[in-house]
Structure formats: C-alpha cells, structure tokens
Design a protein around this nucleic acid. Structure first.
Length: 759
DNA sequence: GATCAGTGTCATAGG
DNA sequence: CACCTATGACACTGA
C-alpha cells in the first residue's frame, strides 16, 4: 500500500510536470479506483462501498469516510483537472531559475519556506515524512499568479533536498523494495516489447533499470531530478519556447538515460544542475530516433516509455493503444491541438464509472470512450514501485484545485464544468432555465426569482450528483466480508441477537438464525446445493437472464443496485426532494430480490432447500406447487418455503409500493415546479403589461401636454393645465373641464379635431 | 444516545 | 377460496 501510494504520488508529479510543460494529460486511468484509494483495495467487499457509491458520489454525508473521500476527491479532481491544464509557452518563458546554493528551503526573499499565497505560483513543501521516504509536494496554483523564479528555485532545490533525504533512508527503502523489485523486474521483463536491435535506447535504459532493481531505479530517480533541474534551468536560458521545444524538453526529461555517479548523493549542486550545458550526456544517451529520426515516432516512443514507467503491468495495453495510433503524433505536433490527453492516448474508458467525479471536477475528461478496460480493477492495481518523485499529495490545497479554470479549449463538455472550478454554480434545469428567464428579463426579474425562493445559492445547493454506479455490485452473499445491506446488519448483529438465535426451529422461518448459520453459510456457500435440473425445469416459465438460479450465492453479483441512485431519466434529477435514496427509483418488477436472500437464503441453506429462493419467490403458483410436489420436503421445509415466498413477494410489493409513493411525491414536486414556472411566467407577463401600460401612460401624458399647450382661451391665452383638464367622452368627444369639476363644452370640436389630428 | 433514512416483515384489505 | 398485490405499521440497522 505504501508503494502504491508513492506510485500515485509520483504519478501526480509526472502529471504536474507534463501539465506544466503544456501537455494535456489525464492520468485518471492509472489512479486506483477512488473508493479503493479511500477504503482500501478490499473495499469492494465492505458494506461501506455498498452504501457509499463513491463513484456515483453517493457518499452518505454522515459517513466517517467523508474526510477521506473529500481528500481523495480533491486530489483526484486536481489530477484529473490536469487534463485541462495547459500552460502556454509564453508563461513558461517567465520561469527563470536562479541557482540557490542552499538547497533546502530557500523561498523567495522574506518568505517562509512554504510559499503558500506567495507571489510565486509554486507552492513547495519539503520534508513531509511518510514512512521512510521523504516527500515534497509542488502545487501550482492559479491564484498565485505567474510562477516566480524564487519559487521555482525553491522547487528545484526541494527536489534535490527530497532526494537527499531519501538517500538517508535508502537502506530501509532498498530493503523494502528488493523483493518487490525482483518481482517487478520479472514482470516488467515480460512486458517490455521485443524490439531487438531496433529498440530505442530509452527502452534499453529502462529495461536495465527494471532488471537491476532498486539501486538503478534510485539512480533513475536521481537522474530524473537532475533532468528536471536541467530543464528548469534551460527554461531560464530560453527567452522564448515553442511548444515543440517544450515537447523536446519533455522528451529529454523522461528517458532517464543519464548515469550519475553513485557517489554523488543526489544533491547535485544546483549551480551545476542549472549550469550552462547540462545536456550533453543526455543527448548522447537519447534514442537515435529522438535526435535524428521522425519526431513523431520518437514521441511515440517517449510516450511508450512513460507508459512503461507508469504502468508496467499494463504495458501491453499501452502498447496496443499506442500501436492503434491513439496518440496522434500530428496533433501532438500541432500547436493548436497540443492538449493531448494521456488518457485518450492510453485507454478509453466509460464516462461513468471511470470518472467518478465527473460532475464535480469538470467534464473535460473525454467522454467518448467506447471501451472500458479493467485498469481500475484491483487485479490491475498500480504497480508496486515508487516513482520516487515523491511529491506529496497531502499538501494539495483547494487553491490548487482552481488550476486552470477557464482554459479548457479542448473541453468537450464545457457545460459540465465543475462547480468546484467555476465561480458561478451551474444551475440545474429547470430551475436554471427559470432563473435564466427571470434574470434575463430587463425588468429585473431577479427579484422575482428571489421572491419565488430561487436564488443562485439555493439553486446550487440543489445540484446533485448525476452519476450512477455501474449496476454491478460485487457483494457476495457467502462472503463474511460482504455485509451488503440487511445481510450485513444481520451478520453483524447475529452475535448480539444470539439470545434468540437458537438453531433453526419451527419458528426459524420468522426468527433469527444463529451464528451457526453463518458458519453453515460459509461452509455451504461454496457448495450451493441447488440441483441444476430444477432451474432447467422451470426455466421456461421463469427465466431471468443473467441470473444464477443454481448458483444462488452468485445472485448477488448481477443485481442492479442502481435503485440507490437518483433517477437518471427524471427531470427531477439533481433537484430537491432528497427522499429517494432507494431502489424505488426504477421500476421494480421481478428483477429485484437484492439482498432478499439475506436471512431467508441462510435459512434455506440451513434447511437444505433444494432450489433457490429466486425460484421460490418468482415461480408462478402452478409451477411453484409442482416444484414442491416434486421434492420430498418436510413440513418445516414447506413452511419455510412458503414463508420465503410470502416474504419475498411482500418485499417486492413493499418496494413497489414505496416506489409508487416516491413517484407520487415526485409528481407532486414536478407539479409544484410547473406551477412555479407558470407563476413566474404570469408574473413576467404581468410586469410586461405594467410596463406597457406605463409606456402608454407616458405617451398619453405627452399628448395631453401637447394638446394643452395648443389650447387657448377666448383671449388667446394658453390654458393653464393646473386649472383645466381634458376629459374623454364615451363617444370620442374631448371635453375641457375645470379642475374644480365643472366641465365645459368649450372648444369641444376643435379639441377633438386636434386630438385626432395628433393621432 | 438520539435521530433519521432505508429496509424487511407482518397484518390486513382489496382485486 | 386461493392467490396476488397494495399499504400501513412496526422493528431493525447503519449512518
């Protein structure tokens, strides 16, 4: 686990570095599944996983894993956000490196070692000790402005310092890794592509590293640090850098071809590192293609090596994808398409479960993947080796998460930009549209919206996770480590309820079974004992494709647990009414029976019932009776079977009932929303009408004044509007009335003519 | 320890 | 009348 963790951290560092150079990448597939990171590799067999659908972001807010969840979520989101992180080359130009003689923490003048919030854009922490390996983390924060030279200095120095400290622990580390290396080198040997004489030097170098084990690998790490320093130094030396140059730097960085003196304890003098010509050796060791051949081929090879570094166990996979041309060299070389996604290059994956934090960390991750490979499965967990670039993720801050908020040119789904990355929360529809209508109204319908109780804050709070899990649950009913709902509660409570947990008796069908049942279950679970012919016999009338009629302990595997998820097809999705965290969110016919077989399954096994509970519950009554008659069953068994059937059917009925309840509630909610929308529309209409009336009044007032200005009394003097008023008769006549109420017919017709003329 | 949501189960009504 | 479904009520469990 430690090594795995370190590998992940190293991967993060690689991601950071690649991103800093401007290469868009996504290392998501290489990270362990999020729930695995949080709960450990065995989490698929824990109940927490069952309830906390992390990939679906359905973690219960009361979960004790929440902290870890958010930490991992933040970290994962950050790393995946690197997919969108592209530092323009012009920004790289502003990264001069000034050599610092003292390696440790030499922040900017007057700044502490930790440069959080400093003028520079790099945040460097040193000396985080985890186990025996020192770690340092480099965090680029968009809020910090351009990366300052001092900070870069610090980072480079810390890189070296980190490796120095690592040397101190080298003995321990090597001792720990010797065995691993043996294993890894064996595996890695098989997975290196056979290139014969034409193999690139970088491949050879790494092959040696793999074969030689830890020491060489440490050297490689040191060389990597050395190279990084060199690259940063050369960045300083270059006043401008094209993307291709950045790529070349990247290529130079990752071959690890140099062989430093073992006696040189990592801490190569920074001046030397940032010296004038750090590259000759590396150039000598670079692959012939890299310097002479087709640059695209070379780049592919570099990626190939990077893949080998990152995922030696999946080397063949990377090779396959590489060969399939998923890395478009042309696009790599195209400055416009420089955001090459490592994920795209390596393996496509489904949009759902491979992006557990999709909705929270932006939709920039490619969603078009048609293929899902099993990189996230425990069996293909990250290799047990340490990249030794030991940037720690523990120092990642939220500010770092705000990296590259808007620079997502290649974002295929910008609309799903995470609220975490956006200043303004994305309003869910239809509230969002409602607000849109309101806010866009020139009559300041924001007030209206607020009056309606819709404000952006509330609306954003209504935002809800969209994901659902894969629909596949790995809850094994026979596994003691797979509590899986009621069975879990039962198992865990069986000891506490041992008082009434006597061995299955006549009342066993309704009572609680004992610990012995658990034992029986464990022992018999692998046996199953359901005669296949039974299933075959009744398969014509009762067929549930994909079910395991004769392997009841496998029935748990294929169950659809998406009932725990919000209704994906509902327009209510992502809205209020927090009620439905239940299975009733989808039609629940005969394909349920999730967790049905908790107690009853155990009882049935204890009583040696020769067919599955699935059959018992779901067979038509005729076939059910036929089934009973074809087996010699005791009264106790028959009673249990009938109880199982009754309970199973009632359970389904209850679930349907609850689902209907929720449907009613959802319908009401939708009705309320519709009424709200209607009300908003009406209010908007009303406001428009008021505006229209106001406008007409103004026009009328203007006309009124104009008419008055033309009126004259008998002496030809203008009539004061304060003394007279115009009144309009029903017949269209216009009367001039005095303010005291007495109207006069004075100048009636001329006035009318005037008025009409004005019209 | 209280509270809550989810779930299973029972009793009962009704189709 | 048997069977099934629906639903209220209650208990249990984990969070």
């Amino acid at each position: 686990m430690c090594l795995k963790k370190y590998f992940t951290e190293g991967l993060i560092q690689v991601a950071i570095l690649l991103s800093l150079v401007g290469v868009r990448l996504d290392v998501g597939p290489y990270l362990p599944a999020s729930h695995e990171m949080i709960l450990g590799p065995t989490s698929t067999l824990t109940q927490t996983q069952f309830h906390n659908q992390l990939d679906g972001q359905d973690l219960h807010p009361k979960s004790v894993d929440l902290d870890g969840f958010f930490t991992a979520r933040r970290l994962l989101g950050w790393v995946r956000s690197l997919d969108r992180l592209r530092v323009p080359s012009s920004e790289l130009e502003t990264w001069p490196v000034r050599p610092e003689p003292d390696a440790l923490v030499v922040g900017a003048p007057g700044q502490p070692a930790t440069l959080e919030g400093g003028a520079g854009g790099l945040e460097v922490h040193a000396g985080d000790q985890v186990g025996s390996v020192s770690r340092s983390s480099v965090v680029a924060g968009s809020d910090y402005g351009p990366i300052g030279e001092d900070n870069l200095d610090t980072m480079v120095a810390l890189l070296r310092r980190s490796l120095e400290e690592e040397d101190k622990d080298e003995d321990l580390y090597e001792e720990d890794t010797d065995t691993l290396w043996q294993d890894q080198s064996d595996r890695g040997r098989h997975q290196w592509p056979e290139g014969g004489e034409e193999e690139l030097l970088v491949g050879d170098t790494w092959r040696e590293i793999w074969r030689d084990g830890g020491p060489s690998y440490d050297r490689a790490n040191r060389e990597l640090a050395q190279d990084l320093s060199d690259q940063f130094a050369s960045l300083e030396a270059q006043s401008s850098m094209s993307f291709q140059e950045c790529l070349r730097l990247l290529e130079d960085t990752f071959p690890f071809g140099e062989e430093t003196e073992p006696s040189d304890p990592v801490g190569v003098d920074l001046r030397e590192a940032s010296g004038e010509d750090p590259t000759p050796v590396r150039e000598l060791l670079l692959s012939p293609l890299s310097s002479h051949g087709d640059p695209s081929l070379d780049l592919e090879q570099q990626w190939h090596d990077i893949l080998a570094i990152m995922e030696p166990e999946d080397m063949d996979l990377g090779t396959d994808v590489m060969q399939s041309g998923s890395i478009q060299s042309s696009s790599l070389m195209d400055p416009v398409h420089q955001d090459v996604s490592l994920q795209q290059a390596i393996l496509p994956r489904s949009s759902q479960d491979s992006h557990p934090f999709n909705s929270s960390f932006g939709g920039s991750v490619p969603l078009e993947a048609p293929l899902q490979l099993a990189l996230l499965s425990p069996s293909s967990s990250v290799p047990d080796f340490d990249l030794n670039l030991t940037f720690g993720p523990s120092d990642l801050t939220d500010s770092a998460l705000s990296l590259e908020l808007n620079g997502t040119v290649g974002n295929p789904m910008p609309s799903i930009q995470s609220s975490l990355f956006l200043e303004e929360p994305v309003l869910p529809s239809p509230l969002g549209s409602l607000l849109d209508d309101a806010l866009l109204d020139e009559l300041s319908f924001q007030d209206l919206a607020l009056e309606e109780g819709f404000n952006p804050t509330q609306a954003s709070q209504l935002e809800e996770e969209l994901d659902s899990d894969s629909g596949l649950s790995l809850t094994f009913s026979h596994s003691p480590a797979s509590p899986s709902g009621s069975e879990a509660s039962y198992s865990s409570s069986s000891s506490s309820t041992s008082s009434d947990s006597s061995v299955f008796s006549e009342e066993g069908a309704v009572g609680y079974s004992s610990d012995m049942e658990v034992i029986v279950e464990r022992e018999e679970g692998a046996v199953g004992g359901y005669s296949p012919e039974v299933s075959k016999m009744y398969s014509t009338s009762y067929q549930k494709p994909g079910r395991f009629n004769n392997l009841p302990w496998l029935e748990q595997v294929g169950h659809d647990h998406t009932y725990n998820q919000p209704r994906a097809t509902s327009p209510r999705q992502g809205k209020s009414l927090k009620l439905p965290k239940s299975r009733y969110s989808k039609p629940y016919k005969h394909d349920i029976s999730d967790k049905l077989w908790g107690r009853d399954e155990r009882r049935a096994r204890t009583m040696k019932i020769p067919f599955s509970n699935d059959l018992i519950v779901n067979l038509p009554v005729e076939e059910f009776n036929e089934l009973l008659t074809k087996h010699r069953l005791s009264e106790t068994q028959l009673k249990l079977i009938r109880d199982i059937r009754r309970r199973g059917k009632n359970k389904m009925a209850a679930q349907n009932c609850r689902r209907r309840k929720l449907d009613v509630l959802f319908g009401l909610e939708e009705g309320v929303e519709g009424l709200c929308r209607h009300k908003a529309r009406q209010l908007k209409e009303k406001a428009e009408n008021l505006r229209s009336v106001r406008e007409m009044k103004q026009r009328l007032s203007g006309l009124y004044q104009e008419v008055f200005s033309r009126l004259r009394d008998e002496q030809g003097r203008p009539l004061p509007a304060t003394d007279y008023s115009l009144q309009f008769g029903n017949d269209g006549q216009v009367l001039l009335a005095t303010r005291n109420g007495s109207a006069s017919e004075q100048n009636c017709k001329p006035h009318k003519k005037q008025k009409d003329g004005k019209k």
